[in-house]
Design a binder for these strands. Structure first.
Lengths: 196, 196
DNA sequence: GAGCACTATTGGCGATGTGTCAACAAGGGT
DNA sequence: ACCCTTGTTGACACATCGCCAATAGTGCTC
């Protein structure tokens, strides 16, 4: 048995990538740390050494999965509200469908939504997305707590609808786009103004 | 040691009620079958005898939690669309806030969303709710698959918004009501018609 | 009321998974 | 070539779960 010694960062990265693959393909309970260790060609104890507990490892995985889609929304297209809504929805659907499997695993929380820590990670990602939405529709400057809550609510709709689209396949992309864009316009014009 | 013998139905019911209380207060992984058995004053093996596996027990619990709110939506108030939207939203918020803790535990899936079987149970409840919505707005007769998908999407919004309301408390009930009613009207008038 | 049969209930066995930690060895510095 | 840092291992202790043979309530029969 010849065992190789790696830089901590490299080893950590390698284990993490295996964990991402496994947690992306089956729910939390169906992935054992033994599985991760075996597929990484490593002793099980090393997984704990680098990531602490199994849940800690999972949190790291979800964090990565949810951070990937944070790729620049920076280019705000300007124009009237309907056009802006269209382009932010398009952007969202593009990103989500590109990383569909890992994104679905993360938002579906692969078998651990409801756990306080996991929820925190997801909630933070939703927060970021909600702020992005508010910025894109021109209400980004110092939003009320209520306004951010409403925006999170819309993000919830977007997540759920995208899941409906990608997992069930009963909606076409055009239908999803219409649904999300229309509701966003409604939110901005008729609901957000009441957040005081 | 004096042990009592119960009718199978009674014992089953008793264990189930304990399980509902426990799964309603902490996530799936933090509830052991030993806990359930101890609090029910029963040997652990008996839990398996009545419910099979731990997940089976949990599925039963979630089923009960989600079935409670299914209390009659039967009285459709008639009137124009905005009035109907208002009353169905009121009804929903009433039911949900009344059973808030167990409802939150069930929809948040107390630590096991993502698991295929659990998702099935939740999805079925969402289906029922979606049909209720469609009926309430007068589109209940033989809906398209796409239309039902859109309705489920709206139910997803309602669930998420209610969670935002009950758990975070940054939105008032009036704001939640406005958000859901307004978006429902928009859905019916501008989105549902494109489900062909 | 004593014995009996039915079955609800128990307790423990084996398997699996997890966190920890002392011991081991790989690989660079001297 | 030796040593010393530290990445890495293997095993121990503990918890939980599914299963099943053994046990003992409880109503029924005579």
């Amino acid at each position: 048995m010849r065992r190789r010694r790696l830089e901590p960062d490299a080893r950590r990265e390698q284990i993490l990538s295996v964990a991402i693959r496994l947690f992306g393909s089956k729910p939390y309970a169906d992935v054992s740390t033994t599985d991760v260790a075996r597929e990484a060609g490593v002793a099980r104890g090393l997984v704990n050494h680098y990531f602490g507990t199994k849940k800690d490892l999972y949190l790291e995985v979800v964090r990565v999965m949810l951070t990937v889609p944070e790729t620049a929304l920076e280019l705000l297209p300007g124009g009237e509200l309907p056009e802006r809504a269209d382009s932010i929805v398009s952007w969202f659907l593009d990103v989500v469908s590109r990383h569909s499997t890992s994104w679905l695993a993360a938002t579906g929380a692969g078998g651990m939504a409801g756990d306080a820590d996991v929820d925190d990670v997801i909630a933070e990602a939703v927060d970021v997305a909600a702020d992005g939405v508010l910025r894109a529709v021109g209400m980004g400057q110092e939003p009320t707590a209520a306004l951010r809550g409403m925006a999170r609510s819309y993000v919830g709709l977007a997540i759920y609808t995208a899941q409906e689209w990608l997992q069930r396949g009963v909606l076409t992309r055009d239908q999803v786009h219409l649904l999300l864009a229309t509701n966003l316009v409604t939110m901005v014009e008729r609901v957000f103004p009441h957040a005081r």
